[in-house]
Simulated scan of single mutants.
Amino acid sequence: MKTIHPQHDVGSVLTALNAITGGRVVMDWNEVTAGTNPYVVTKTSNIPGKSVIEIPGLIFGDKQKPVRRIGVGMTLTESVIELASGMQLDLVVVHHPVADAASSGGVPFANYLPLYDLALIELHEAFHGLHPGVTFLHGHRKLKTDICFGGIQGNVLHQGVALEDVQTVKHIVQRIDRWMGRHLDEEVLEAERRIRGEASLQEANLMNPVQVLSGDLDSPVKHVLHFFPHSGFTVEHLKQALSLYPETDTIIVSISRVREHSELVQYARRAGLNFIVGNSHSLEILENGLPLAYALEWMLPGVELFLLKERVTAVPLMQVGNQTMVEYGKSMAEQYLVAGREQAVHK
C-alpha cells in the first residue's frame, strides 16, 4: 500500500530550509526590522531607488498555505512565474534576491502572484558556503571558506587542494565540461538551429566556456584559491589571500567572469599563477539549485520538487525564423514606432 504522507505547508518548508542552512533563515519578521539576522543585507550600486534588501525567508504568501509542488530556481522572472502557473506549483524557492516588479514583469507581487496562488521564498547569502559542490565541480577539495572575506558580506573565498585525479590545468578544464554536460547543450543548440532555421542562434550556457587566462593546459595544479569576481573581490583581496596562503599555484574564478585584461589576471600572471575562468552564472542552477532541491525532497517527503531551468538564447534579428512574427514585428515598428520619426535620429 502506498504511504500517505502528512500535508506540508509553507511554514514547514521554512522550517526545513532553516535546518538546511543551520538557522540562517528569517523565521520572524522582527529579525528584519531589528537587524538581528546577519544574512539580511542590502545590495546597492548607489543608483537611486534600485537597491534591494536580501531577506532569506518567506517574501510572499501565507505560512499556513498547503504545499504539494515546489519549484526551485535561481532567479525569479515573469517566465519563471508563468512556468510555475502552468505547472500549478504552490511555492517557488529561488536562490537570488527578488525585487517587487523587477522580478515579476514590471508589476507588484501583490497583483501577480495571488492570481496563481503562488508563494515565494528567497535564500541567497543564507545558502552560500553550505556545501562543497562548486569547488568539487572545479576540481578541488575546499579546506577553508570565508563568506565575508575582507569584511564584505557575500565576498566568498574558498581555499582548497586539487582532487587526486586533478594534476594539471587541462584536467580541470575537461572535468568542468564533462560534469556540466556541455556536449548535451551543444546537441540541443544544434538541433534548435536546424529546426528554427536560425544558424547563428546562441545560448547562454555555451557562450561562456571554461578559459585559461594564465598558465597553460599542462601547468601543474595543487593549491587553489577560488572566488567570485562579482562579489567585489579585488586585487587587494587577492594579495591578502595570497599572503594567507602563499603555497597557492592556481586561481579559479567562477559564476561571474573576468576578461584577459583584468587586473586580477595581470597580477596572477606576474606572480606566475594559473588563472582559470570556470562555470558562468548561467550554470548555477545545477551547482546550487540541484543540491537545494534534493535537500528539500529529503526533508519534505511526499512533496514534488521541480528544477526551474531558465534557458536564454539570442539570434541576429535578420535570422529570426518565424516569418509570421517577423512580419508582425516589422509592421508594428513601421506603422506605430518609427513612422514620421526618422528625422529625429538624423538631426
Rank of each mutant, 00 (worst) to 15 (best):
G215Q: 03
K142M: 15
A110Y: 13
H281E: 02
A293C: 01
H183E: 13
N111R: 11
G329S: 07
A126I: 05
F109C: 07
L201K: 14
G302F: 07
F149H: 07
T248K: 05
G151L: 12
V338I: 15
L307K: 03
S103L: 10
H158Q: 05
D249T: 04
M207V: 12
T3K: 15
L283D: 05
L292V: 02
G154V: 05
V134H: 11
L130I: 15
V338G: 09
L206N: 08
L300V: 01
E190T: 08
F306R: 10
P114I: 12
E297N: 12
H95E: 00
V312H: 14
M332V: 07
Q153F: 04
R269I: 07
Q167L: 01
G73R: 02
L115I: 14
P38S: 08
L184E: 03
V210W: 02
E125F: 14
K65L: 08
G289K: 01
T324N: 11
L273Y: 01
F228A: 10
L213S: 12
T44A: 02
K63P: 05
I53G: 02
D185S: 05
L264N: 07
S45N: 04
R311A: 08
S256Q: 09
P220G: 02
H96K: 11
G181S: 07
H223M: 00
W179I: 11
T234D: 11
V169Q: 00
G278D: 01
P56Q: 01
Q174V: 00
A84Y: 00
A199Q: 15
D249M: 03
P301F: 03
T168I: 00
K50E: 06
R259C: 09
L118F: 09
T15G: 11
H5L: 13
N205D: 10
F275C: 08
G129T: 12
S200H: 15
L296F: 01
L296N: 03
H124P: 07
V72T: 04
V169S: 00
L157Q: 03
S254V: 05
Y328L: 04
P209L: 06
A314G: 13
F127E: 09
V26Q: 11
Q319E: 15
S262I: 09
E122N: 05
R141G: 06
H5M: 15
R141N: 10
H230I: 05
P316A: 03
V173Y: 00
D28N: 15
K142I: 15
G340N: 15
V26S: 13
P114L: 09
G150N: 07
I121P: 06
T21L: 14
I152W: 06
T33K: 14
G150V: 05
L296S: 04
I55C: 03
H128S: 13
T44Q: 03
A199F: 10
E164C: 00
N46K: 02
V326I: 10
R182L: 04
L143A: 12
R182A: 04
T3M: 13
T75F: 03
L244D: 04
H171P: 00
G215S: 02
